[in-house]
Design a protein around this nucleic acid. Structure first.
Lengths: 209, 209
DNA sequence: CCCCATAAGTGGTCAGACCACGTATACTTA
DNA sequence: TAAGTATACGTGGTCTGACCACTTATGGGG
């Protein structure tokens, strides 16, 4: 059969988590794929359904799987931001230092700009340039694209959370016109870090120290 | 009473997670403290015990709580490596994800170095200098101090988590001697960003592009 | 006063029941 | 035949009650 009975000694639900991992690996399951139903897992592993559910619920809270009532349980794209979200509500609850949120958001945006420079993907930058010329957009929308271009999912997740907090701060919005964003993209295309930073500082009205 | 009945609409166990968070906050519970027993939570929240357990097991897998049979359930010190372990086995298989972890950790360390430069607290830097001259320390220990000096709680949290992931990757350790760290501190005292970055790249054996 | 047997409390697990929801099936109807 | 509808089935969602294993508090006997 392939699935050994659950070992004793540790908690059953942890064993089930382990077995699920093995199962996913062996069967080569990918995000979007369906995993066996709860009742089938009970039989395969010789455990109670409540134990299976404890394992599945835990993985669900982690954002590793997704359950749809009446349909089944599916593997999720691991890069979802579920976990950061959760840690946000639990860990960051006492750390709402406005200043930290702002500072961190800005620094990560800068990091993303540096990453884009490093990646040096001219084609995507040209697309971005075209987009900002043709479309109306908000600051958020612009930086979503920036963070995406940086191509680092961790930064993407962290930035998303930070941005939510940032929005929640309801700071007086500084409305910026296209030229500020154009300058950044232009600088990115130019490949000069100093100029990129300068254009970002200018957008954010920060001193360039 | 203070605990409202669980709202409908979303899954019960998620509501319980939320209520627990509120409960912890309101009662000012800290790591090590005991939370109500499963059966008591059932009554307080008017839900079945299995739902309570689903919530608790999920939080346990995340490392946010700890359960001891016969004793009870306790709040745990966050930043424990529980979730790291788990995501290590589930998520970090993905090489892209590994790459992201490393990259993000390094970039945040760089950000912290920049923050220290900006803060310009010479006294604390002198203390750090003294410490690295007199004590044995690991890379982790050094950067804990760096991140602390950066004085941004968000970065501290994020870095802690990233560092746990990083450790879980079990990369071949590059052993570095004191001079590398001294160079960084020296550069920080000098106040020249370029030199700070150079000394960091040197430590991490990164190209300085 | 100390020690140990018992009771009470707690988490761990299982089994079964029922509900809500989505889908596939088979039947009815135009 | 084709479209639409009603039913059955599979799935997750939740609750209840039962039993076990373990820890701690209790109280009686030495």
């Amino acid at each position: 059969m392939g699935i050994e009975p659950v070992e004793r000694g540790s908690k059953v639900y942890l064993e089930i988590v382990k077995q699920l991992r093995i199962m996913i690996e062996q069967d080569g399951l990918k995000p979007g794929d369906k995993i066996p139903s709860e009742r089938e897992l009970c039989e395969r592993l010789n455990v109670g359904r409540s134990s299976v559910r404890e394992a599945l619920r835990a993985l669900e809270l982690l954002g590793l799987i997704e359950t749809r009532r009446g349909e089944g349980t599916f593997i999720r794209d691991f890069r979802s931001n579920q976990l950061v979200q959760l840690l946000g509500t639990f860990v960051l609850q006492d750390t709402k230092a406005k200043q930290d949120v702002i500072e961190t958001k800005y620094l990560i945006e800068l990091d993303c700009l540096r990453l884009i420079l490093r990646r040096n993907n001219e084609e995507q930058l040209e697309n971005l340039k075209e987009w900002i010329e043709c479309a109306e957009f908000t600051d958020d929308q612009f930086f979503i694209k920036i963070v995406e271009l940086a191509d680092n999912h961790l930064f993407y997740r962290i930035w998303s959370i930070l941005n939510d907090y940032y929005d929640a701060l309801k700071l007086p919005r500084i409305e910026r016109k296209n030229p500020y964003y154009s300058a950044i993209v232009h600088a990115l295309l130019g490949g000069k870090e100093a100029e990129v930073l300068r254009s970002y500082y200018s957008l954010r009205k920060l001193s360039n120290d």
